[in-house]
Simulated scan of single mutants.
Amino acid sequence: MTDPALAKALAAPRGGSYLAPFFERPCSAQEAVDCLDEPMSKVHHWVKRWLTLGALEIVERQPRAGRAITRYRTVADEFVVPVVRGEGRASTGWPSTS
């Protein structure tokens, strides 16, 4: 992994858990809500974030009355985040982007 923003999101508390439902099979946001037992607003936030960071891709749009059902899948079967230990805490090893 070479993207510091993606590494930071994966290392965020609970960040990776919002990506978990999309590893095994294509999954809609509603299916992720059901799996995670989290509100749609929170799951939708993370889906948009993962799409922007390139960790998720759209694999299917199922037409239906109203809004189509979009299914997403991770772009890799696993993500490895390099960790640098120092100063009493773990970090991603990249400078802060803030």
Results as ranks from 00 to 15, higher is better:
2 T>K: 12
2 T>N: 08
3 D>G: 12
5 A>W: 09
5 A>E: 14
5 A>L: 11
6 L>N: 00
8 K>I: 12
8 K>Q: 15
10 L>N: 05
11 A>L: 10
12 A>L: 13
13 P>N: 04
17 S>E: 14
17 S>P: 10
18 Y>P: 10
24 E>I: 02
27 C>W: 00
28 S>T: 08
29 A>L: 08
31 E>L: 05
34 D>P: 04
34 D>L: 04
35 C>H: 13
36 L>F: 10
37 D>M: 05
39 P>F: 06
39 P>I: 09
41 S>P: 11
43 V>T: 14
46 W>P: 06
48 K>R: 07
50 W>M: 03
50 W>A: 08
52 T>Y: 04
54 G>M: 03
56 L>I: 05
58 I>M: 09
59 V>K: 00
59 V>E: 00
59 V>S: 03
60 E>W: 13
60 E>S: 13
61 R>K: 11
61 R>S: 12
63 P>I: 02
64 R>D: 03
65 A>M: 13
67 R>T: 08
69 I>D: 07
69 I>L: 14
70 T>Q: 07
72 Y>N: 03
72 Y>G: 06
73 R>W: 00
75 V>L: 00
76 A>W: 07
77 D>G: 06
78 E>C: 08
78 E>T: 12
80 V>R: 00
82 P>D: 04
84 V>T: 10
86 G>R: 15
87 E>C: 09
87 E>P: 02
89 R>D: 02
92 T>S: 07
93 G>D: 06
94 W>T: 11
94 W>N: 15
96 S>W: 13
96 S>Y: 08
96 S>D: 14
